Computed example of a mutant assay.
Amino acid sequence: MDKTLLQQQVLDRLTEDLLQVEQAARAAHETATHEENIAENKYDTLGLEAAYLATGQARRAEAIRQAMLSWRRFRPQPYDAGKGVQLGALVCLVDVEDARQQRLLFLGPAGGSMTLLCGEQRVQVISSDAPLCKAVLGKFEGDEVSLQIAALRQHFELLWVQ
């Protein structure tokens, strides 16, 4: 599987997300500043609420821009069996209790958590700050990966790394 293609798909998705967030921010800003939404009393808060929404959308847009910058600078390296799993690795995990359940993960920088389709295969892109990414980093093929989520403990085997 081509990691450069996966990286481009992440950037494409982030670009789409940015366009949507920017459009929502513009609409919220227009609502906040429209003359019909000037507060007439203390209970008339439509303009204020729209301003808060516009601010939140602007922050989200900036976060997406930062994620895009990280992903543009990111250079996935080939797997080095001496170092174990590093950011940029494409890994296949299999559930220890149900070998039919396999997960393909692409480990990347912050801001890229999403699921992509590569041909017929689903690839989950996880960020460096995700608990599953932290659990996989430094592991080797054949190692067990254990993850605690609330009261549930999941166990996987690291089937292969690319």
Rank of each mutant, 00 (worst) to 15 (best):
E144T: 15
N37I: 03
L14I: 05
L107N: 02
Q154C: 05
M1D: 08
T15N: 07
M68V: 01
Y79G: 00
S146Q: 15
G111A: 06
E141I: 12
T45D: 14
E97L: 11
D2T: 03
A50E: 01
K134E: 09
G112F: 09
Q148Y: 01
Q121R: 15
D44Q: 05
D98A: 12
K139N: 04
A24K: 10
A89T: 04
A51F: 07
G111L: 06
A28L: 09
Q7T: 06
R59K: 14
E40C: 02
D12Q: 14
E36V: 13
L14H: 04
T15K: 13
M114R: 10
E36P: 00
Q7W: 02
V96S: 05
L87G: 00
E22D: 12
L14V: 04
R65L: 06
L87N: 01
L116D: 02
W160M: 01
A28K: 03
A63T: 08
D129R: 14
G56C: 05
R65N: 08
M114G: 01
F140I: 02
N37H: 14
K83P: 02
L105T: 03
L104W: 15
S128D: 11
A32T: 07
V85C: 01
L18P: 02
A67V: 08
A89K: 03
E36D: 15
V125K: 05
P76M: 07
W160A: 01
A27I: 13
T55V: 06
L14W: 04
T33I: 03
L90S: 04
H34Y: 10
H34C: 08
I126F: 09
E30A: 09
Y43Q: 10
F156T: 03
M68W: 05
H34N: 14
K42M: 03
N37M: 07
V21H: 02
A54Q: 02
L19F: 09
N37C: 07
N41E: 03
L6W: 08
